[in-house]
Simulated scan of single mutants.
Amino acid sequence: MKWSEICIHTTEEAIEAVTNILYEAGAGGVVIEDSQDLQQEWTSAEGSIYSLDPADYPMDGVNVKAYLPVNSFLGETVEEIKQSVNNLLLYDIDLGDGRITFSEHNEEEWATAWKKYYKPVSVGERFYVSPTWADFQPEDESRHVIELDPGMAFGTGTHPTTILCIEALEKYLPNKADVLDVGTGTGVLSIAAAKLGASKVLAVDLDHVAVQSAQLNIKLNKVQDIVEIRQNNLSDNIEGTYDVVVANLLAELVIRLSEGGVADLIGGNGLLIASGIIKPKKDQVVTALARTGLSVIDEMESGDWIALVAKKAD
């Protein structure tokens, strides 16, 4: 079977929004090539330093590549994608040049080629993140191993925004905590929380494919007795209170989450960990949190990304 690779050159800020458009259009998989990754020093789970091949990455910005089956509907699908990407400008999302290019690949080429982007790596101080197909034997037995099958469109758990959330969980998650994971994606943050000692985790995502991906990974990591997966729009109709709410979302969605009453879901001494925030939009998020009674107590950054830790204002 032949697949058409559609490549959208955009910005880090637009990655999640563009990715959502692509899998809603029926993409058979998504690869993210971020030029910022070339500036980082990557440490494998075995402790060795490895470098990425610059030929696989754009000189600047981000390439988001999706794979669509070559069929009679391809032309219409591509036009819908173009229109949806252009509509992101209405939400004040910086698309960069938004250049779209195409190429064709055989299924066998795509199915194996994308795996070169994903190796076992050390994350934070207490985790390894490894693909399920890797024959990985951790050298440091004090670290937890999170095995992920990233599925078709939900990443490898090593994006800076995810790493910031894991580091914040390592720092702030109390033992036996009740956790709400909003926008769970692969479920990696829920798995991390469970392995760090959470007693109960509710993980929600609006997209049913993300829910299926998270359910698979929860079982792979044997934390299904702790983590519940549910299809849900942000924190709508969720009841009770939580010790930690973690939300790895776009800045606009973090603002919408705060306006939707997330503060009411945070217990008296509880915390909100919010990531996926591009630096230029940090002040907007801080202001939105303050309007709903949440005060930022810590800020973490990686490249152009910010994670905020907030609690209810005294």
Rank of each mutant, 00 (worst) to 15 (best):
A263L: 02
V62I: 09
N248D: 04
I191Q: 00
G293L: 13
S51Y: 14
K279L: 12
D53Q: 14
N221F: 05
D243Y: 06
I238E: 03
F73T: 11
P160R: 10
W305Y: 06
I277Q: 00
P131S: 04
D37S: 14
Y67K: 02
Q231K: 15
D207Y: 05
I32H: 05
A45V: 06
G96S: 06
R99N: 12
Y50T: 10
A310H: 02
N248T: 01
A307W: 06
E239K: 14
F136D: 05
H159L: 09
G155R: 09
A25T: 07
A14T: 00
V223F: 11
W42M: 10
D283V: 11
I49P: 07
N87M: 07
L22S: 00
G124I: 10
W110S: 01
I81F: 03
L148N: 01
P280V: 07
N233T: 07
E167P: 14
V245Y: 05
K2M: 15
A274P: 09
V18N: 02
L173M: 13
L180G: 04
W3K: 01
A198N: 05
S122D: 00
E299F: 08
G293S: 05
S4M: 15
P54Q: 13
M152P: 08
T101I: 12
S103D: 08
V18W: 02
F73S: 13
E104A: 08
L272P: 08
N71G: 09
T156F: 10
W305H: 05
G293Y: 11
T77P: 00
